[in-house]
Each structure stands twice: as structure tokens, then as C-alpha cells.
Design a protein around this nucleic acid. Structure first.
Length: 814
RNA sequence: GCCGGAGUACCCCAACGGUAGAGGGAGCUGAUUCAAGACCAGCGUAGUGAGGGUUCGAAUCCCUCCUCCGGCACCA
């Protein structure tokens, strides 16, 4: 007769209890909740430590990518806690966003209802993870008690001149029907939906992040990955040079332009304006107008990808107007071309075809003059085959001729300054943060438009401007708020006359730019932050999150922190003292996302192996910062490990004497795991614990008992359920998660016996077992006695030896 | 094109300039079993992308190149 799977045959003796994750995990979820294990006090005898991991968008499911982000962060936070800190590890939801609104258009379910339902499910999933989250401090950005302070932030920035309204050619996503910030355009595609982005002239709200460009480059006093600092530095794109202006021939207008090569100004044989440049219309001659207008119109229709492709051949149109090169006195033609960007510098350039690849190509195409003014060898050349962009000596440059290009850069800029036509200048690639969104599911911008008073901010005491629930979602994609008359129609706070509300909402990155200030007391309704409580926590001691936010969220959050500091609301200028980014989890080579339909659900793994196994596997896949391709085939390995831990820890204790070897092994493991967890090296920490478990498997006696205890403590932050259960079964009366982290004792950890490697001329020839701590002479003597080493020496004299204490002896003959 | 990061066994990955192997997966052998699985014990395979250099000694540092990943890219 065959026993049913999983149940012992009736005639077998009763077996020892097996590891059954589902049962013990549910038991501890309840117990921890009942005991409020995750509730962090604001004051404790342990020093406070504010550990935050980026909060998720409530898509409805915590997929494998979320587990990869969250559970190792939870492990790191638990580790810090066991090491004697009072750790606040909060969670919330970045709950506004276009996904919910698009779903509403598709399915008719209101974004608010949909979001609430999704959050409820995700809270349940967080509970499965076993993350030690203080839910009393939850922040939900779509609730009026949160976004009210979004509006407050907007008003403060507005008062300070850091929020402003301007008409500009903005990035427009035709699918999402809204403007986008530059940071949200990835390779010309909408960050959300991969639709090619076009340009549109719109009046929009901006935050003046460029005001902080230089400070954002400093990263002072913060420990951030090099990679993120480099990405932000590239994004800000500081460029030193000079700004000059040339006058328009026969008109009063001057055209300012930026250049990094003032030394080439004598070679400026024409100018190029961006098609959107404000002077284009004014200076274009009537003979050229039709062609210019057509070109401008064509440019506007082109997508960002079409426009910025570097491979594309250069196109442009002559405006018929001329500028005067102040340095040469020449009249030079003014062209427009789409390779000049309206949003960089001044939207105009002096074209120096001899020394710029792009200008060279353009001049060749349209037969414009090319004049060499920088020479590599100091002699003058004609008929350049290519632009020369390197350094050299200035030629054909009036009194500057003979200077090196480096000298010339300064001299020309200084000369221009004296003559009042320009001077040294700095330009950034970073542009102001466009925060208006022509959508519903976001924070209403607290502004009223009054026909007599103009733009009027909503007074603080009238906040929040609540998002109306009852709006119409239509497939045309237009903003539901703009059509909601009862929302739009209002009275002017200033003159009480009829007025209209701003219909745009804020970019959701505004919401997430300051949520860390809200966590310490998310319920305070008199300020954006409970300063007294926040002072105990802020700034964030450690922050973790995906590398994909390197320039989006992380740059915005730094800006808002600095702005709030300047407004007198914060006492620090960097929000995140210490940052680490996990890499991206991909599935079969592409990033996991709901829209791609390749989301891997953790649920079946949790059901089959338990949350502990999945948590462990997240850390075991490889270096956390590297990310990984999702492949669950290795999950069995960590699951077997937990079974082994279970078997070891439930085995009855045995008598005997202490085992110094095993004690040493245990203490070396403590040292190793401690170091690894400090560095977020979960994979090698788990590996060390697997080794330890194998050592303990066949051990006995008191050393074994202590070893098992240590194993459980070291494993507790990684696998909170099984360790808690085993702790209790072994007699623990309080939670293992309130225990202190073990300390490695160096004397116990020290090896008594080592393997001494004997090399001859750097090649390994023998391995000797020797007592630890031999001095150099004794080690050398032992090495010289080695038969194998002598054979390798073959009688050659040893000229000198290298001894590495307790490791190797190298006998060198040459 | 520019700037980062990475190339180690069949796969995922370890290795303060000092024994190339910690761990896991897959595979194989044995023990156990009526048998299978689980479990236990054990096994192997690379000389570290290529080529130079520095060094007593290089996966590790330097140079050149190749491949992959990420960022920036007509940014004046």
C-alpha cells in the first residue's frame, strides 16, 4: 500500500515535525501584528535610524520586481535594528498617476476606487512578505490630507519665484494627451507608454530647478553610488564658455548665442537660429518667408526622434537676413535649421564650419563659407576636408592670431566683456521641471485665473483644492477636469469676481519629491511635516530603490529639499544621506511591467515554498546592485537550505565537550555575514550561512547548540518567519527580532592551523599545514624543507623570499 | 561618438595584488529504499574575453582591442 504524498504511512513511527512554511508564516503574521512588532517608537534608548525604500505605484500587485526591491531592503533594515538602532521603516503609495486614469477610460472604474482596491491588495501582499513596516505611518499621495501639502509646496515655490508659468515648446505625448518633463522623455519616447513625443507650444507651469543646477552637481556630504552621481552630472550637463551677441544688419535686434569655443569666433561665417526662435518671424525677408514658414511648420510636426537623430542629414533655410560678426565686421547670413535646439543655450548659434562637425556639414550642404581660424600646426590652410575640432593656434583672427586656442578662449571672452557684447558664461543641459499635466488623476494646481486680477494663488487656508470625484472619462483623452464646470467655475480669492480654476494637475513626481518628510507623522494637519517628530528622524539615513530613478525622482527630491531648506522649512540640504540602488529585474531580457505583460507573480512561489524561501532567493540571485534575469530554477537550493536549518534546529541537543574548531567557524561566519550585510552583499552572506549549516549538520555538543543559536540570529533578518518559529521551539520567549546581533569574538574566530602555500618563483609548488602565527623566519624555514619546493628549485640558489603571514612563502631565484 | 559598469566551469555567481572556488542550479557516483522521490556522502569540468605591461606573484593594477549592459548624445 502506498502512502499519500506528504503524510506518513499509518504504521510508521511518528516523525519529527517537518518544515511547513504556510502554517508557520501565517501564525507569525498574526502574532507579530498582535504584538505590534513593527511599530517603531519615536523615542527609544537606541539611536534613531531612518531607513526608507522607494514606495510603489499601486498597480494592484507586488510582482517579483517589487520583492526584489523590498525584501532585501527589509532585511537590511532588520539587520540595522538588531545591531542596536531604533529603525523606522515606513511604507506608502505613490498613488496618483496615469495608469489608473487610463484604466478608467477603458473600464469605467473610477481611479479612486481602483486605486483603493489596489492598495488594499498590495497591503495584503506586503503582509505576506513579512516586511517589518510601521503601517501607522503610511502615506498615500492621492488622499487630500496628503496632496493638500503638495499644493502648499506649490504655493511656497510660487511665492519664492521658483514656480512660474511660461509658454514654451514642450514635450507632448499624443497618446497620453499631456505634456511631459524632459526627464520623462527617454530617447524621444514617452517614459510611460513609449509613444514618440512631439513638440507643442503650450503655456505650462514649471519649477525652477535650474536655479539649483550648480548645487545639484556637488553631492556634498552624501554617500551615493558613483553611477547615480555620474548620471545626474551628465543630465545637468554643465558647460563653460561664453555668451556673445551679434546685431541684425539694418535692425536694432541683437541675437545672443552661447559658445564653448570663443577662440573660433573669427571663423563664424553664418548664424543659425532654432526654427522656434522668437526672432525668426521678425527678421525673415519677404522673399524668403514662404519657405521659412513651411520649414518651421514641418519642424513642429516632427517627433523628437526624427529631429534629434544625429545620422540624419542637416536641413535648413536661409532667412534672407544678415547679422554682423562684431569681430570681423562681416555681414553673415542668418539661417534657421532644426539641428539648433530652441531649448538649449539661447536657441541660436554662431556657426563655425571650419571647427565644428555639424556646422561643417551644414555649410557643405548649402555652399556657405568655411574659414580656418584654428590651426594645429600654426600655418594657414585652405580647403579643409573635415572640421578641425581640436586645439591649436589662432590664425586669421586679427590681433588674437598666434594665441593658442586656450589663451584665445579667455582673451576673446574678456575682450567682448570690455566692449559690452558678452562675456564668459555657463550653460546647462538641465531645463526647468515642467510640472503641468493635462490630466485628472493628480494634484490640482492651486491657482485661479481671474480676468481682472490675472493669476491668483489659492490662499493657504482654502487648501486643499479638492479633486472632484464625479467627472467624465472619455476616450478622446481630453482632461476631465477642464470639462468639469463646477470645478472650473469659482470666484477670485482676490476680488471675489467670477474666475476659473487652473485645470491642469501636477506631475506625480512632485508627490514623491517630499513624502519622506511626511512619514514621521502623516496625520499632522497643520503643516506638511511634524517638525518636532521629523527632527528625530530626518534626513533619511539610508535610502534604497531602483536605479531607474537615478535622474527622475532622485533629482527632483534633491531640488525640493534644497528649496524647502531655503524657505526655512528644513535644516539639511540633501534628503538622502546614504543611497544604494538595486539593479533591475528583467524577464527574458526585458523589464518587467504590467504593460509588457511579462510580470512574474511571486504568489505561486510563496504558496509552494513560503515567503522566507522567496526572500532568500531574492538575495541569493547575485549582487543586489547588479540586478538579474528572473529565473526561478535555482529557488530549490535556498528552499533546501531552509529545510536543513529546520532539521538542524529541531534536532535534540546532545552532550559532549566544546569544539574549538566549530566555535571558530561560527565566529568567522558572524564576522563574514556582518560585513556582507553592511555592504548589501546578501548573496555571499547567504552562502556563508549555507556553509555554516552544513558544518552544524554533523556536529554535536554545546558548540553545536551555540552554533545553531547563532545561525538563527544571523538568518533572522533574511528569513524572519522560520527563524522566529525555531527560536520559539528552542525555548525563546520573546521575538528573535528583538534580539541583538551576535558579536564576532576575534580570539575565538582565529584559526589555529593554516595551510601554508610554498611557491617557487611565484608558482605554487607545495602546501604545508602549519600552526597559525609562525614568524617569517620559521615560515621560510618550513618552506625550504619542502621536498616539492626543493625539486622545483633544482639546486638554484634562492636570492630572496617573500613571506605573507599565515598564507604563503615565495622562494625567488632570479 | 563620449562617460560609466561588467566579461571567471554547462548556467547563476565567489575570490584584502597571495592556494582560481564560497554557495546554488543542472549533471554524475555512492548510501538509503521493494522502487522512486526527498535526504545524506562524494565527484567533476574553467585557468578568469584577446594581446601586451608592471610585480617575487595579476581574475584583481596599467595600456590597446573585442563583446555585452546602462547613461548621455546634432547640447553649440
Amino acid at each position: 500500500m502506498r502512502a499519500a504524498p506528504g503524510s506518513p504511512a499509518p504504521d510508521e513511527p511518528p516523525r519529527k515535525a517537518r518544515y511547513t512554511p504556510a502554517a508557520i508564516e501565517e501564525k507569525w503574521r498574526d502574532r507579530w501584528e498582535r504584538d505590534r512588532l513593527a511599530a517603531t517608537p519615536d523615542d527609544s534608548s537606541d539611536p534613531n535610524f531612518y531607513f526608507v525604500t522607494m514606495f510603489p505605484y499601486p498597480s494592484g500587485d507586488l510582482h517579483v520586481g517589487h520583492w526584489y526591491a523590498m525584501t532585501p531592503s527589509d532585511t537590511a533594515a532588520r539587520f540595522v535594528r538588531m545591531r542596536g538602532h531604533n529603525v523606522l521603516f515606513p511604507m506608502g503609495f505613490d498613488a496618483f498617476g496615469l495608469n489608473a486614469e487610463n484604466a478608467a477610460i477603458r473600464t469605467g472604474v473610477h481611479p479612486s476606487d481602483n486605486t483603493e482596491r489596489n492598495m488594499a491588495n498590495m497591503r495584503r501582499q506586503f503582509r505576506l512578505m513579512g516586511a517589518m513596516i510601521d503601517w501607522r505611518r503610511e502615506v498615500v499621495t492621492c488622499h487630500p490630507d496628503y496632496y493638500r501639502w503638495n499644493q502648499w509646496l506649490f504655493l511656497k515655490l510660487y511665492e519664492k519665484g521658483l514656480a512660474y508659468r511660461a509658454k514654451a515648446p514642450v514635450n507632448w505625448c499624443p497618446k497620453d494627451q499631456t505634456a511631459l518633463a524632459n526627464e520623462q522623455v527617454i530617447n524621444g519616447l514617452c517614459e510611460r507608454c513609449d509613444t514618440p513625443v512631439t513638440k507643442k507650444d503650450l503655456v505650462q507651469w514649471f519649477f525652477r530647478i535650474t536655479e539649483y543646477a550648480d548645487e545639484l552637481l556637488t553631492f556634498e556630504g552624501i554617500d551615493w553610488p558613483e553611477r547615480v552621481r555620474v548620471m545626474q552630472t551628465n543630465w545637468i550637463g554643465r558647460s563653460e564658455g561664453a555668451e556673445f551677441s551679434f546685431g541684425v544688419d539694418g535692425a536694432a535686434d541683437r541675437i545672443p548665442f552661447f559658445t564653448t569655443r570663443p577662440d573660433t569666433i573669427f571663423g563664424a561665417t553664418f548664424m543659425v537660429l532654432a526654427p522656434e526662435h522668437p526672432l525668426v518671424d521678425k527678421i525673415t525677408t519677404s522673399a524668403r518667408r514662404a519657405e521659412v514658414d513651411a520649414y518651421v511648420a514641418a519642424t513642429r510636426q516632427a517627433t523628437e526622434i526624427e529631429r534629434t537623430s544625429a545620422e540624419r542629414s542637416k536641413t535648413g533655410v536661409d532667412t534672407g537676413a544678415f547679422a554682423v560678426n562684431t569681430f570681423t565686421g562681416e555681414r553673415i547670413p542668418i539661417w534657421i535649421a532644426d539641428y539648433v535646439l530652441a531649448t538649449y543655450g539661447t536657441g541660436a548659434i554662431m556657426a563655425v564650419p571650419a571647427h565644428d562637425d555639424r556646422d561643417f556639414a551644414f555649410a557643405r550642404t548649402y555652399g556657405l563659407a568655411i574659414r580656418e581660424v584654428i590651426s594645429a600646426d600654426g600655418t594657414e590652410h585652405t580647403d579643409l576636408a573635415l572640421a578641425y575640432t581640436g586645439p591649436g593656434v589662432m590664425v586669421r583672427s586679427g590681433r588674437f592670431s598666434g594665441m593658442t586656442s586656450e589663451e584665445g578662449k579667455r582673451a576673446v571672452a574678456e575682450d567682448a566683456k570690455e566692449r559690452g557684447i558678452g562675456g564668459p558664461s555657463v550653460t546647462y543641459r538641465l531645463r526647468d521641471w515642467l510640472i503641468s499635466r493635462q490630466r485628472y488623476w493628480g494634484t490640482p494646481i492651486p491657482i485661479v485665473h481671474c480676468s481682472s486680477c490675472g493669476i491668483v494663488p489659492v490662499p493657504e487656508d482654502q487648501l486643499p483644492v479638492e479633486l472632484p470625484y464625479d467627472v467624465e472619462f472619455t476616450p478622446d483623452g481630453g482632461s476631465p477636469l477642464a470639462r468639469k464646470r463646477s470645478f472650473i467655475e469659482t470666484t477670485c480669492p482676490s476680488c471675489s469676481g467670477p474666475a476659473e480654476r487652473e485645470a491642469d494637475t501636477m506631475d506625480t513626481f512632485v508627490d514623491s519629491s517630499w513624502y519622506i518628510y511626511r512619514y514621521p507623522d502623516p496625520r499632522i494637519d497643520t503643516a506638511f511635516m511634524n517638525e518636532a517628530v521629523a527632527k528625530k528622524w530626518l534626513p533619511v539615513t539610508r535610502y534604497t530603490g531602483g536605479i531607474e530613478h537615478a535622474i527622475l525622482h532622485l533629482l527632483y527630491a534633491r531640488f525640493v529639499c534644497k528649496a524647502l531648506a531655503d524657505l526655512g522649512h528644513l535644516w539639511f540640504r540633501e534628503p538622502f544621506t546614504h543611497l544604494r540602488n538595486q539593479g533591475t529585474i528583467v524577464f527574458k531580457g526585458s523589464k518587467m511591467s504590467k504593460s509588457r505583460g511579462n510580470v512574474q507573480a511571486p504568489d505561486e512561489y510563496v504558496a509552494r515554498y513560503g515567503a522566507d524561501t522567496l526572500r532568500l532567493f531574492m538575495g541569493f540571485m547575485g549582487p543586489w546592485t547588479a540586478g538579474a534575469d528572473w529565473d526561478a530554477s535555482g529557488i530549490e537550493g535556498v528552499h533546501r537550505f531552509l529545510h536543513r536549518v529546520w532539521d538542524i534546529a529541531t534536532a535534540p541537543p546532545s552532550g559532549g565537550v566544546r569544539d574549538a574548531e566549530l566555535d571558530g567557524y561560527v565566529h568567522r561566519t558572524i564576522a563574514k555575514v556582518t560585513l556582507d550585510l553592511e555592504k548589501y552583499h546578501f548573496n555571499t552572506a547567504i552562502s556563508a550561512l549555507m556553509e555554516l549549516s552544513r558544518e552544524l549538520l554533523h556536529a554535536s555538543g554545546p558548540s553545536r547548540g551555540d552554533g545553531v543559536r547563532t545561525l538563527l540570529l544571523l538568518l533572522a533578518p533574511l528569513a524572519p518567519y522560520i527563524t522566529e518559529e525555531l527560536w520559539e521551539r528552542r525555548g525563546g520567549t520573546t521575538s528573535i527580532h528583538r534580539e541583538r546581533w551576535p558579536e564576532a569574538d576575534l580570539a575565538t574566530a582565529a584559526r589555529r592551523e593554516i595551510t601554508l602555500v610554498v611557491q617557487v618563483d611565484g608558482k605554487v609548488r607545495d602546501r604545508l599545514t602549519a600552526p597559525a602565527g609562525l614568524d617569517d623566519a620559521a615560515a621560510e624555514a618550513a618552506a625550504r624543507k619542502s621536498e616539492r619546493a626543493r625539486a622545483a628549485l633544482a639546486g638554484r640558489p634562492v636570492t630572496h623570499t617573500i613571506v605573507v603571514r599565515d598564507r604563503l612563502v615565495n622562494l625567488v631565484t632570479k
